[in-house]
Nucleic acid binder design. Structure first.
Length: 573
DNA sequence: GCCGTTTTCGGCCCGACTGTTTTCAGTCG
């Protein structure tokens, strides 16, 4: 079993225990363990084999022995007993808005409902309204939520969709005269790869007109809830947006609160209580005396004796402890990127010419751009034969003459073939400035075989970067079955950089693996894999992943000035 | 069920909003 599967089992266990009516802190313990496992950069099997399970935050004696049983036998007796008691399909029912554990338990016990479709049927037949505490309106609300759930393609929206959508809301809100400031919060601000909904926080001393303007935006399909400080809407495409409006005087605590993560906020509030202050979105409340209000976030952290913690690091993955001990790293910023090492042109499957790509990159202030088109065997992408690769070199040289302010380099995104060889012979690779080696085919090979292909590429002295190392797609294709610890370790040993592919549909490496690279002291490269000049904009998502991985600029090779980069490349052969 | 420069036992964040209620339970973030 992999990390994700074990995490999923514990998160389902938590849901089932909650429906059963177990003590809440026992449930939270399972959720915390599940969160911790899904953010773990190391393979759980490796941690288990080396007897380090108890070092995982949130894993104590009981959960460690459950992981032990799970990895030893592939089964968990505790879960099987629980699933015999509470139908596991009720976990799906919990996804419906306004349905939590109490209602799910009631539907099941009183009406025999165990699945989403049974709930929908019961609601449309008016069978829910007879239950205690349920009326016609609750029933209608639940029915609407089920329909909204099916209208959404997936549970969570890609950040590549959510980010531009949020900018649209922010621009319009900021243009209102009553609005002093507007920011995105939630998992979007933390740059998670997917978001459940958009959270928008506005500073305004007259909330009414702001709220009114927001509810009247044309994309709004229905209003799910609305109060004095908070409104929640659903858009035509099923996306949910929440708006918080708070006075400017305590915008800091409001933004901090709305940014989360929930686990980070819980830790922060515990820390606050230890100082005799109760922290909420409105400010710090001392046991007696006046409330402390914070107009900006830095003041919130300062009140607790902490440096400001970047939103991407607020996941309760040790950031508060690190901040208390003054060892929180400064993560890379978008402005640290000096160049692009992985971009395509119309020589393979890119949409524009080398020259246009170069102009666009120069316009963004980049110092260098590597044109790395596909190699010969990738026919669907019009991969370059050795002859075309030679010819392309002359065209790049010509473009270099006509575009100023940027250094153009020739690279290649070389196929790692199904048998583990690279798509060009070594003497061809040796002539290239940069070699990005990637897997595109035969991703479903058994673990040992596909791992060996990547290790082979890493050990080739001409390979500089491994492109989108796992092949996974966000909300889509699963990662190849790889021994990641072996791959990351080998990359570090061979001084090969691992790509954080910044395309929001890829984001590969993910944050957990990238953090593991940083822990191991390895190198990363944030690459857009651009097929069009607009794609250079993906850099923000790649930087988001790197910041979530606590990566300093130093660890990312394309933050280096050109001379240093060239030295690194030539030292590698 | 986890965890400890307040603790190895007794704690474990805080508030808004809704619907069905006459004071609150449930859900959400």
């Amino acid at each position: 079993m992999n990390n994700r599967e074990v995490a999923r089992l514990f998160s389902d266990t938590a849901d089932l225990l909650e429906i059963k009516g177990e003590a809440i802190y026992r449930i939270l313990a399972y959720r915390r363990a599940a969160e911790s496992l899904s953010g773990l950069g190391e393979d759980i099997n490796e941690v288990w084999r080396t007897k380090r399970l108890r070092q995982i935050p949130g894993v104590g004696e009981a959960i460690a022995s459950k992981i032990d049983e799970l990895l030893k036998t592939g089964k968990l007796t505790f879960y099987e007993k629980l699933a015999a008691e509470i139908p596991p399909s009720l976990v799906e029912v919990l996804k419906v808005g306004d349905v939590g554990p109490k209602k799910a338990a009631r539907f099941w016990k009183e009406l025999g409902i165990t699945t989403l479709s049974e709930l929908e049927e019961a609601a449309s037949l008016g069978r829910l309204r007879g239950l205690p505490g349920m009326g016609e309106r609750s029933e209608a609300r639940i029915l609407e939520s089920i329909q909204a759930l099916s209208r959404r393609e997936t549970d969570r929206i890609s950040i590549g969709v959510a980010w531009p959508a949020a900018q649209g809301f922010l621009e319009r809100l900021r243009s209102l005269p009553e609005v002093a400031a507007a920011e995105a919060g939630g998992s979007l601000r933390r740059m998670r790869e997917t978001v459940g909904d958009l959270d928008i926080i506005v500073a305004s001393d007259s909330p009414e007109p702001v709220m009114k303007a927001f509810l009247a935006f044309p994309e709004v399909e229905r209003v799910r809830g609305q109060g004095e400080t908070k409104a929640s809407v659903e858009l035509h495409d099923g996306m949910r947006v929440q708006l918080w409006v708070h006075p400017s005087a305590h915008f800091g605590t409001a933004l901090q609160y709305a940014t989360g993560s929930q686990a980070h906020n819980v830790r922060l509030r515990e820390l606050s209580l230890a100082k005799g202050l109760s922290l909420s979105e409105h400010g710090f409340k001392p046991k007696k005396g006046k409330d402390i209000r914070c107009a900006n976030e830095a003041e919130v952290y300062e009140t607790l004796g902490l440096p400001w913690i970047p939103p991407e690091m607020r996941e309760d993955r040790g950031e508060i402890k690190a901040a208390l001990e003054s060892r929180l790293p400064v993560p890379i910023a978008l402005t640290d990127l000096e160049g692009e090492l992985h971009a395509h042109s119309d020589w393979s499957d890119g949409q524009t010419s080398i020259e246009d790509m170069a102009r666009a990159a120069a316009g963004l202030g980049l110092q260098y751009l590597v044109i790395s088109d596909h190699s010969r065997s990738l026919g669907v992408a019009n991969g370059l034969s050795i002859e075309r690769l030679e010819a392309q070199r002359k065209v790049i040289a010509a473009a270099q003459k006509s575009v100023r302010g940027i250094r153009l380099l020739q690279g290649s995104e070389v196929e790692i073939l199904a048998d583990g060889r690279l798509d060009y012979p070594d003497e061809v690779l040796a002539k290239l400035d940069v070699v990005v080696a990637s897997l595109h085919t035969s991703l479903r090979q058994p673990r040992e075989k596909v791992t060996r292909r990547l290790l082979n590429a890493i050990r080739n002295p001409h390979v500089d970067i491994i492109g989108h190392p796992t092949g996974r797609m966000v909300n889509g294709r699963e990662a190849a079955d790889l021994d990641m610890e072996a791959i990351l370790t080998a990359a570090v040993e061979n001084d090969v950089a691992l790509e954080i592919n910044a395309n929001p549909e890829r984001l590969d490496l993910n944050d957990a693996h990238a953090r593991r690279v940083v822990e191991l002291g390895g190198l990363l490269s944030i690459n857009t894999d651009a097929h069009h000049p607009d794609h250079f904009d993906f850099r923000r998502y790649g930087v988001g992943v790197a910041r979530r991985a606590w990566a300093p600029a130093e660890a990312v090779v394309n933050t280096w000035p050109l001379e240093r980069l060239l030295d690194w490349l030539s030292a590698r052969g």
